[in-house]
Amino acid sequence: MTAENIIEVENLTKIYGQFYANDHLNFSVKKGEIFGFLGANGAGKTTAIRILCGLSKPSGGKITVAGFNVYNQTEQIKRNIGYMSQKFSLYDDLTVKENIEFYGGIYGLNNKTLRQKTSDLLQKLDLTDKQNFLIKDIPLGWKQRLAFSIAIIHDPQIVFLDEPTGGVDPITRRHFWDLIYEAAFSGITIFVTTHYMDEAEYCDRVSIMVDGKIIALDSPDNLKNTYQVDTMNEVFLKLARQKIN
C-alpha cells in the first residue's frame, strides 16, 4: 500500500466456469475518497465488492484492502472495513439502542467505549428520545442514517455502501449524504454503488463497469467533459449502451 492508496487492485479476475464475472480490473482508491462503483445489473459489481470485503476469493490478481491481501488476511480486512447494504441488517425486533450495542459488541468495543459511542451517536442522529423504539417502527430515512452510523461504529478505514439510498425523499437523501461527506472529511474512505446516476455526481471519482470490465474511471466532471454531456446519467447510458449494442 502506498501512503495514500487504501485499496489497490491489479488485474482482479474472477471466473465462474467459462464466465469472467470480473475481467482484469485495475484501480486504486485514495484514503478519504468517495469512490463510486457503477455498472448495470449483472456487470460484476457485487462480485468485486465481495472480494474486496474478504467474503470471496478472486481467481487471480494482486489486491490489497487497508494494507491486507484478500487471499489470506481476510479477517484483518473485515476488522478494518464497514459494510451497509440496501437491506441494512438492522434487527427489526431490537430497539435503536439495542442495535447499536449489538453491533458495537460484535466489533469488540469495550463497555466504556461502547457507552460513549452509543450516547454520541444517539445525540448526533437526534434519536436520544427514540432510543427505545423498535427498528420496525421507525421511518426508512432514520433507518438508513442509523445503519450507516452503525457500519462505522468501529472506526473502520473503509466503508462499503451497496445501493444505500433507495426509496427516500430528496431531503432525507441529502441528510444521508451529509453523513457520508462528514465521514469522508474525517478520513474514512467511502466505496459506494448506486443506481441513481445523479448520486454518482456526489462522488470524487467513479468507475463504470460493463460486462465484467471497467471501461471508464475518472471524476464526474472529467467524464462529462470527455463524453461531451451534461450529466452522469448520459455518460452512463453512452458507455453502457455502446458496449451492449
Binding site: 448495470a40 445489473n41 433507495g166 443506481h195 446516476m197 446519467n233 452512463f236 447510458l237 453502457a240 451492449i244
Partner: peptide, 10 residues
C-alpha cells in the same frame, strides 16, 4: 423501474 439499472430504465 425501482431497482432496475439506468439503461433498462430508459
Amino acid at each position: 423501474t425501482t431497482g432496475v439499472d439506468a439503461v433498462s430504465r430508459v
